[in-house]
């Protein structure tokens, strides 16, 4: 299944939830904020949202800044 994660085209396992996707990417769900097709998905709801072919996902966190 093809999705766009942080602007990059990626092939991921079909039918995964956002929570499973984070696991696949080896990311700690407590350390990232997930935007799925421009909608923020709360941490508690990550396991309830299935990723579909063509979805756009943004995974962000805090970095150094002024």
């Amino acid at each position: 299944m093809d999705v766009v994660i942080n602007g990059e085209n990626r092939k991921i396992t079909a039918g995964v939830t956002l929570l499973e996707l984070l696991k696949e990417l080896e990311l700690d769900p407590r350390a990232v904020v997930v935007e799925h097709n421009r909608r923020i998905v709360r941490r508690a709801g990550l396991g309830d949202v299935a990723v579909a072919d063509g979805d756009a996902i943004e995974l962000v966190h805090f970095v150094g800044g002024g």
Binding site: N6, V60, F62, G64
Partner: peptide, 19 residues
């Protein structure tokens, strides 16, 4: 302390969050 919001680095080169 101020922090910025940016994309996570997906290639796992340990570019860690400021946290």
């Amino acid at each position: 302390v101020t922090v910025a919001v940016r994309r996570v680095n997906l290639d796992r080169t340990k570019e860690s969050s400021v946290l």
